[in-house]
Each structure stands twice: as C-alpha cells, then as structure tokens.
C-alpha cells in the first residue's frame, strides 16, 4: 500500500486548481493492488495544446485548434483516472534545463505564474500543485547512489517551466495527483543532447525509488518527436490551414518510430530513438523518452499510439505503455 494518501479524483473544476487535504485517506475501493510503475506515457507539451483548450489557469484565449491531439489526451486522462489510478505522476521535461546534474523538484507546493519565453502570447499559466517530496528525495538519493550528479531543489522561488506544466496539465488538468518533476541535464549554450546513457541510469534510479517507497506511479516523458518547425507564425496562431508536417522526411521518420512502437517490444527502440534524433532533431534528444522506457525496464510490449499531430510543423504523439503483466484496461 502506498504511503502517499491518494486523493479521490475530482472532476476538472471551472476555476483555479484543487487543493489537497493531506488528511484524506484512500478509500478501500480506490486502493489498487499493485505498486510500481503502472504506465509510461509519451506526453508532449507544446503550449499550443493548452492555449487551444482555454483552461482557466491560462490567461490567453483561443478559438481551439489541434483537436485530434487534444482528444488523444482526453482518452489518456480517462485511462489514468479509471485504470492506472496512480499515487504520483513523475515527469521528465526538457525545458527545466540544468547545466550541471540531474535535479529533482522537492518543493512541497510549487505555485506561481509560468510565462513561456518563446510563446508568451500563448502560455501564461497559473500553477499550484503538490509534490510527492518523499519520492522526489528518494529518486535523487538513488540517482546519487548510482553515480549521477544530482541536486534536490528546495527553493520555492524557482519558476516551474512550461514543459513540466504542459505535460502535467494535459494528462491531469485537475492537478489532483501529486507530482515529482525531474530536470533535463543539457547544456543550453551549446544546445547539446542529453547523455542517453545517463538517462538509462536515471530511469533505473526512478524505478528503484518508486519500488522502495511503494508508490503506484505513472511516468510522463514530456517530448515532441520530429522537431523542425516554422520560424514564423500565422496571424491567428491556431490557423489550422497552416498546420502540417514540416516535410515528408520528418513525417516518414516519425511514422517509422511510431510503427516500431506499435509493433513492440521496446528494446529495438533504444537504437531507433538515436537514429530518429539524428534524422529529425527529435526533442527526445533531451532524454525523457529514454529515461521512461529505461525506468520501465524496456518492456516487451507494444505501445498504444493514441494520437499523432503536428504543431508548428513538429511531430507530436501521445503514446501509452503498460508494463509486462500490467492490465491494459
């Protein structure tokens, strides 16, 4: 049984975010039998998806757009609520860039406004969520034990980035599941790629920590796929007449990766992810997808591609993996 008190899921509210009552106890029927990593999700974060949804937390208003991807997220939300019922969402996101080491957000209640530096006209989001601090610290400790350079963030003034918020909102807009957020150890000045070997180690550390603390966790890899995009924006950002793959090469490579994902198992993806990065400048170069599949032990299962679409020309897929022996609901 998890040591985190799982909060009964509330419907998405029309205003603000739900606050936790940490004295709440899990009810018998909501206590799932199995702890561990119960699912991994490729959950891209382009701010356009949140902008298009018009949630109360985001200040800019839109007329919609990118519906097919947003419908995929709606199906995923339902599976998370009804099937996976996690104690915690663990997210690895490429825009909390840490130049030295892998950082874990251990702030109990991060809150503030996150203004997206590149698309500030689309994303000015008021966030307020709970961290599973015990699990966060356990992940950092396991990672240190495995030889990674790490740091625990305790300063509540550090602004939470839009990729972390984006994936978390899209998966769970009610924000009623505790969170652990991990940084991406990249060099922002040289726009380097993460060491995918280190991401395997971080994945292993994550799995050990989840098991040690007895959590039921869903992992979120907050990455887009092919990553070439338009450099100019239409007058109406959600003008879908202008939305299509950057080019056929990028699209074909995304399909090659997604077909391999749909076929399963995941082991061949190890190599294919690297080739896909090489071919498409995929955002998976930040290492989130590798981290997640490594944490799941590169399971012998196919992934469920729930949706694919482009955003300013980049490829984005919502994909769910459930581990071997896990029920697919």
């Amino acid at each position: 049984m998890s040591r985190v008190f799982r909060v009964p899921v509330a419907p998405a509210r029309s205003g603000g975010v739900r606050r936790y009552d940490t004295t709440e106890r899990p009810s018998a029927e909501s206590a799932p039998a199995r702890a561990g990593i119960v699912a991994g999700v490729l959950s891209p974060h382009p701010p356009h998806l949140i902008y298009a949804e018009n949630p109360p937390q985001n200040e800019p208003r839109s007329t919609g757009g990118w519906e097919v991807l947003r419908w995929a997220y709606e199906r995923l939300r339902k599976r998370i609520r009804e099937v996976h019922r996690p104690d915690v969402l663990i997210v690895h996101a490429p825009h909390w860039i840490t130049m030295v080491g892998h950082h874990v957000n251990c702030v109990p209640n991060p809150r503030g406004v996150s203004v997206e530096p590149i698309f500030p006209h689309l994303f000015r989001y008021s966030y307020d969520f709970r961290t599973d601090v015990e699990l966060g610290e356990a992940i950092a400790d396991e990672a240190t034990d495995l030889g990674l350079v790490t740091r625990k963030l305790h300063d509540p003034r550090v602004r939470v980035d839009y990729a972390t918020i984006g994936a978390l909102h899209l998966v769970n807009p009610a924000w009623d599941i505790p969170v652990v957020s991990l940084s991406a150890n990249n060099n922002p000045y040289f726009y380097s790629e993460a060491s995918l070997e280190e991401m395997e180690v971080l994945g292993e550390a994550t799995r050990r920590a989840v098991e040690r603390t007895g959590r039921r966790a869903v992992l979120l890899a907050s990455n887009s796929l092919s990553h070439l995009h338009w450099h100019e924006e239409p007058e109406l950002p959600e003008d879908m007449e202008r939305e299509h793959p950057y080019n056929n090469h990028q699209y074909r490579w995304d399909m090659k990766l997604l077909e391999a994902i749909r076929r399963g198992p995941t082991a061949p993806l190890r190599e294919l992810i690297t080739e896909h990065i090489e071919a498409t400048a995929s955002e998976t170069k930040a290492g989130s997808l590798t981290w997640m599949l490594a944490a799941m032990g590169w399971p012998q299962v196919p992934g469920d591609v729930m949706g694919y679409g482009t955003i300013i020309g980049t490829g984005n897929a919502v994909v769910e993996w459930t581990p071997e022996g896990g029920h697919r609901g």
Partner: peptide, 28 residues
C-alpha cells in the same frame, strides 16, 4: 545568448521589467 527563442526575433518592449529571478540551475 541566454534569451534564446525560435520564432522570429523577439524584442523586449516592457519599459521596466523588475522582480526576482532564482536561477533554475544555480539556486543553491
């Protein structure tokens, strides 16, 4: 170089941005 963007060339048009910034890597 630390204000990096990808869409066009972005210009700061706020006459007086002020506040506190705690760096996401060097906060400790």
């Amino acid at each position: 170089t630390q204000w990096f963007t990808v869409l066009g060339h972005q210009f700061q048009c706020d006459p007086n941005p002020r506040g506190e910034h705690v760096d996401e890597n060097w906060y400790a």
